[in-house]
Write a protein that binds this DNA or RNA. Structure first.
Lengths: 244, 244
DNA sequence: GTTGGAATTACTGTATACAATAAATAGCTG
DNA sequence: CAGCTATTTATTGTATACAGTAATTCCAAC
């Protein structure tokens, strides 16, 4: 593919490139691939994301990669340092607090709306998601479980009917996964799995206020499970370590 | 018009752009210029934003313009249609409702925090902003007034101390300006100007709950002032007009 | 005069070349 | 051999060339 300058302008070559996917979908797929890898902690906070490397892996040019990195940066999953390139964001303790406070405000505030719009179909879907999450957790796939858990919260927000707030919750959940990756205890997923089932119960019963209170406790529990110690600097402070 | 094949490559121009600013700042300035123009309705919803044209105006290449357009698109101020390019977003009535519901939830929810952190300095700054807004309105600069009003709401959210929620409010306010541009009545700015001063009073008094209730009414008033009629299609529906 | 279709044009999508800068390394010099 | 500077290398930033596609115009035919 290095000598791609075949002079033939016929449509055959065009068809070939469009073989499976529209260029747009391809970009979206790559975006999701990177995003998932970050959320699932296969790419750890601080990991550098070199443009060339990504371009090689996904078989597109740096142009497309840069677009994707920019998007991830605006979503705060990736940090773009001028002339240093991209790396997976390492959330600070302050950011973590902000994110969880925001989730308190928004996700709890949405519960009454969700309860109002909750039907059998929706409840069944949520139960299915909760089940997947439990299974992943049981089989030791913690990273996947974290993502399923985030998916659950996002779907819940979508059921409120407010697309803008749902999208915001999506961002918050992605960032929460990062936060869990950094500050969470090994083997302790933020969400207790049965919590989600309980929540579905309240929502199905149309008890928005109870669901709201439960969600509040639920989020507080997740936040409390974090150990908020700033991780060691990459470059250790020699002064501090060896005294003066 | 675009004699793009002018053989003269003004490398000097590169130096020129770095003269006073880092390339980054330049980009940011252009971003703000476009964003402001949209928010102030100098660029009206539906207006096409051609890459070449913008590149010419700002003296950078399409590469940089595309980056900026993508950012604006992620903030939903600009709509990016594949192979059709960029245009100023024309919010739908549904989006308008979502945005104002989101503002109800978030901005009202922040008032207690804001009241708690409100000091003399902050109050003075807010009063200054409210004053600027009133003056702009009085001198007939409605577009500028809309932006000042948005600035006020954003600054308020920032005072809550939660950067994540403040940024979200910023987005919501930008979109609100667009919504006002489309659905607002001429000569009727959403916010009553004295409203903002009243609000500062409650906050300064530390009365978060009262501020919250006031903000709620304030936002409801803005929303109520909109005339939620979808604008006529460019291509009229002949079937509907002439019956069957 | 309208319609259908071909040629032209205008614009976006993508890759790539080259410039600029930060990091790493090597080569001096005391 | 430590510490500093020069050179090389790795990597990002920006412009531009070219390809592909939608829109437009023009022309012929009915």
């Amino acid at each position: 593919m290095s000598d791609a300058q075949a002079p033939i302008k016929r449509r055959a070559s065009v068809k070939e490139t469009k073989d499976g996917k529209e260029g747009d979908e391809r970009h979206d797929a790559i975006y999701r691939a990177v995003s998932d890898a970050i959320v699932e902690q296969r790419l750890k906070p601080g990991a550098r994301l070199r443009e060339d490397a990504l371009a090689d892996v996904f078989g597109i040019s740096r142009t497309g990669i840069r677009k994707i990195l920019q998007r991830l940066s605006l979503e705060q999953l990736v940090t773009l340092t001028p002339r240093r390139g991209a790396s997976v964001t390492r959330p600070t303790a302050y950011e973590a607090k902000d994110v969880f406070d925001a989730r308190q405000l928004v996700e709890c505030g949405l519960m009454p709306d969700v309860a109002r719009r909750m039907g059998e179909k929706e409840a069944a879907e949520l139960r299915e998601m909760a089940k997947r999450e439990r299974q992943a957790l049981r089989s030791g796939q913690q990273s996947v479980a974290i993502r399923f858990s985030a998916d659950f919260h996002v779907r819940l927000a979508q059921l409120s009917g407010n697309a803008t707030l749902a999208e915001f919750v999506e961002r918050l959940c992605s960032r929460s996964s990062l936060i869990l990756a950094v500050y969470g205890h090994r083997g302790h997923l933020g969400c207790e799995s049965h919590d989600h089932d309980d929540l579905i119960g309240y929502l199905e019963a149309g008890n928005g206020e109870r669901a709201k209170a439960f969600m509040s406790r639920h989020l507080k529990a997740i936040e409390a499970s974090l150990s908020m110690v700033e991780e060691e600097e990459n470059v250790p402070d020699l002064q501090q370590i060896f005294g003066e």
